[in-house]
Design a protein around this nucleic acid. Structure first.
Lengths: 345, 345
DNA sequence: TAAAACATAGTAACCGATTACTATGCATTA
DNA sequence: TAATGCATAGTAATCGGTTACTATGTTTTA
């Protein structure tokens, strides 16, 4: 009935007691309050339709119940499950999640970081794009709780990392085991540490099995355009498939640097009458859920997104509770998911 | 250098002035402060590495800069673009987005609503699952700014609605125009208004073109299990495709109640050697980005997700600024996206 | 039985900002 | 020149909670 929200002062007045007592009752303090008075307070709160104002509480206690997740783009299918994993853990701990899409834009990432600090979030889980982010550095120094994931940041902070190199190695080794010797690498430019590692894995596998590296077989598009939607990498795959088909000594297998590109590649090949896997084998990277839905279902390297989200959040809360000043790193190992897009050459 | 964050008191002391002046300078108030003093304050702020504490400001101004988005599940590919649209608008207005996944669980939805109110969010954008949510009602009555979308809620509040019935109609009419007369409806149980409307559209199209309704052709799975991931509807489609294939007088076309189900259906059909669209035409609903990536690309009804997100956020901010107490409703019309999963019968 | 400990309640300071109100000196106006 | 207005600065109240500290009556302990 009251349009204005009642405060503990209103309740105190109504229950003929003090705000201290009201606060004690309503915030479940273990400070003793007699049953009778407690009941009066509770009745008053109910009667006045009281809703606590968390801002007031937070100012005094200096404890917010928010954490932030900063990712490139939630519409990139790699991220939703991660965010869900984070949120599931956060909810369990009584925290809420502020979602920040940085669009891989350093200015935006910076602005979000700054803004989150001002909001007094308890921690930040971030897939940082910049390798040399001053703001980021300052925050780490300021002892803000940060968990980096997805990209190998060089700063000392808590991290969930992934062995991208081993992932690349596994993918290419799989193709080699199937008898492929001419293996193309297709993807976006090698402008992030994670991609560089995948590339290294590709090279490592070739080397181990004595396959000569052919730089004609590395097809990367030029500059990455602004990454504004999930379709971009897919389109890119279609495009690169065309270039692939013009290759003189055409490879029999393709390792795409991520699933969306792989799906685009398959699409591009198909549209030119090339069959996958009969004519060309294709391996992706990430194991986004879509890779199970396309035809042929994509053989790919698994990065367990939901689990990574949970791990990141757990790591964050752990570092919140035992502040030993130590930074932890959890390194995940890749696994290969073999489906239908690869076959013996 | 200072590990503890400086407050305006520290700055006032350092700059030998009062907190009032500091606040005026740092919050860009239009209250006049002499250039010299202003500069001293700015220098002090810089020197002390000042970061404003938004909680303090919010308590006094009663203005938070948060809005909440409550959706069933961010890992369902229908929602990320919506959330992105909301966030893009929010960022532009200086707001942040709290993400809440309700898992279609009324208790959870309720808890989130309550929690968001306590956090003093400026508004809530919600795909509400419950048709009879007491908490929700109370909030609407309390004049909280709410925009409902995606589901037809019956309460008076701001809404972004979609003409699901017309969408269903368009899909089925398309099939009829292609010469199909036996058209199956496949999907989840009709336990939400939106689905009921799609079903009505299906019936309406049949009726308009004098096609007799055959209830054998309506294939719904029993009870919806907990919706914990994006794969569920897909799996369900595969399952229902099997049941479809056992039908005595097998239809020549399928209208699936959403894209994920449609993609599963196609998958299921293919695995039994049935070709799409040569043997069976399939139409989906939603136009999630994946429908463009599968083979065959899916003919479907477009619900423009990113735009819906932007519209919802804009509607929210509009209702924040001109509080005329009026509730607005923006009703979106469906459009049919014809791709490769349908053909003449 | 006196002292110490405890249960219970209230007063008021505090968290970090904003802002109403007051004060002062200078410029403008009559 | 006196009155008025404006630019500038500071004091202190305030937002809605929490909690340190104080106070009082009752119970336990020596």
């Amino acid at each position: 009935m009251n349009l204005k929200n009642a405060t503990i002062y209103d309740i105190a007045k109504y229950a003929k007691t003090s705000t201290a007592t009201v606060s004690r009752v309503l915030s479940n303090s273990d400070y003793p309050v007699s049953d009778e008075l407690k009941q009066r307070v509770l009745d008053a709160a109910k009667k006045l339709n009281y809703t606590p104002n968390l801002v007031g509480r937070q100012l005094k206690t200096k404890e917010t119940s928010d954490i932030a997740v900063i990712i490139p783009n939630i519409s990139n299918p790699f991220y939703p499950s991660i965010v869900l994993g984070v949120e599931d853990v956060a909810r369990e701990k009584g925290y809420n999640v502020l979602l920040c899409d940085s669009y891989r834009n350093p200015q935006l990432e910076n602005a979000y970081l700054q803004s989150m600090v001002e909001k007094q979030v308890k921690g930040i889980i971030i897939s940082s794009i910049s390798q040399n982010n001053k703001t980021f550095m300052q925050l780490v120094e300021k002892d803000l709780n940060i968990v980096a994931f997805d990209q190998d940041v060089t700063f000392p902070c808590n991290k969930i990392t992934f062995d991208f190199e081993d992932g690349g190695f596994l993918a290419v080794e799989h193709l080699i085991m199937l008898g492929h010797k001419k293996i193309a690498l297709i993807g976006a430019p090698i402008n992030r540490p994670s991609r560089k590692s995948i590339y290294d894995g590709y090279l490592k596998a070739l080397k181990k099995y004595n396959i000569k590296f052919n730089k004609e077989y590395v097809l990367l598009n030029e500059l990455e355009k602004e990454f504004h939607n999930e379709i971009y990498e897919y389109k890119n795959g279609i495009e690169l498939a065309k270039r692939f088909l013009q290759l003189d000594d055409r490879p029999t297998a393709i390792f795409a640097i991520n699933d969306l590109t792989a799906i685009g590649v398959i699409q591009g090949l198909k549209s030119h009458g090339v069959r996958v896997p009969e004519d060309i084998s294709v391996v992706g990277f990430d194991n986004i859920f879509i890779s199970e839905m396309v035809q042929p279902a994509l053989t790919t390297v698994d990065q367990p997104q939901y689990e990574m989200g949970k791990l990141a959040a757990n790591l964050l809360f752990e570092s919140l509770s035992n502040k030993r000043g130590k930074h932890l790193e959890i390194r995940l190992k890749p696994s290969l998911i073999i489906r239908d897009s690869t076959q013996r050459s």
